[in-house]
């Protein structure tokens, strides 16, 4: 099941300073929508604001028909938005299996949780081998699997992915992007935040470019590849 995520005229920030200014974008149902931007352009703040970890100052965020603006984070998650956070953020002192179960925390049906865990193990057989290992003792690549698997455990309508390539070897990055594509093919709306332009545009259907907290360009992957703003932002 998928649903579109729409962000309308969103302004947000920390303390006195606004980081996001009047941001409008839409992650189409069932597609991969990417958000490109350099360091400090406000990408992570946007993710945080969608989850209400940072409170929006103005604007609206809707999941399909539901207005989720300003709701507590756990209600936003329960409405169908999951997140694979920047830097993976696995629960280091919990086992792989516990991490995965936390991903499905909002799900009351135990058999559904078991079925989802099986699907995660199908994608990452390694996690099955390591299910009783503490996540903190695993390699960066394995932790990335835990983090992605944990996001899938929620069986979300929309999956927010924040910089999955950060700190991973190129081979792992490629693998992860393939997995993201597979997830999307199962009908999950993906909103992918990345700095890695080439890889991202290979799998994204549509994209936005964020610079200094404003959307400065948007278009499908082919358009963005040619776009001057993108060129300016990344290839100087």
């Amino acid at each position: 099941m998928s649903a579109p995520l729409t962000v309308t005229s969103l302004t947000a920030g920390y303390d006195q300073a606004d980081v996001l200014h009047d941001v409008n974008l839409r992650a189409q149902a069932g597609q991969i929508t990417c958000l490109l931007g350099a360091n400090g352009s406000g990408k992570t703040t946007l993710i945080r604001t969608i989850l209400n970890l940072t409170a929006p100052r103005a604007g609206r965020i809707t999941l399909a028909q539901d207005d989720i603006t300003g709701k507590p984070t756990h209600e936003i998650v329960a409405a169908g938005i999951a997140c694979i956070p920047e830097g993976r953020k696995v629960f280091a002192k919990s086992t792989v299996e516990e991490n995965l179960r936390l991903g499905a925390y909002a799900e009351e049906d135990k058999s559904a949780v078991i079925a989802r865990m099986q699907r995660v193990f199908d994608i990452f057989p390694r996690l099955n081998e390591r299910r009783t290992q503490l996540a903190g003792t695993m390699s960066g690549g394995e932790q990335a699997m835990v983090s992605i698997g944990r996001g899938l455990m929620a069986a979300p309508k929309v999956l927010l992915i924040d910089e999955p390539s950060l700190g991973l070897s190129p081979l792992f990055v490629q693998e992860n992007f393939k997995v993201i594509q597979r997830i999307n093919e199962q009908g999950v709306t993906v909103f992918l935040v990345e700095q890695n332009v080439r890889q991202t545009l290979k799998i994204a259907h549509y994209g936005y470019v964020l610079a200094q907290g404003r959307v400065v360009a948007e278009g499908n992957a082919a358009q963005l590849r040619r776009d001057e703003q993108v060129q300016a932002a990344y290839f100087g």
């Binding site: 507590p72 953020k89 629960f91 179960r101 925390y105 929620a154």
Partner: peptide, 24 residues
């Protein structure tokens, strides 16, 4: 228990626990 799992998650990382859908 599931409650204990949530308590341990909150103890380790408040924000990520919230992202898991835990009512902090």
């Amino acid at each position: 228990t599931k409650l204990g799992l949530a308590i341990r998650a909150v103890a380790q990382d408040e924000e990520t626990a919230k992202i898991m859908g835990i009512n902090y």
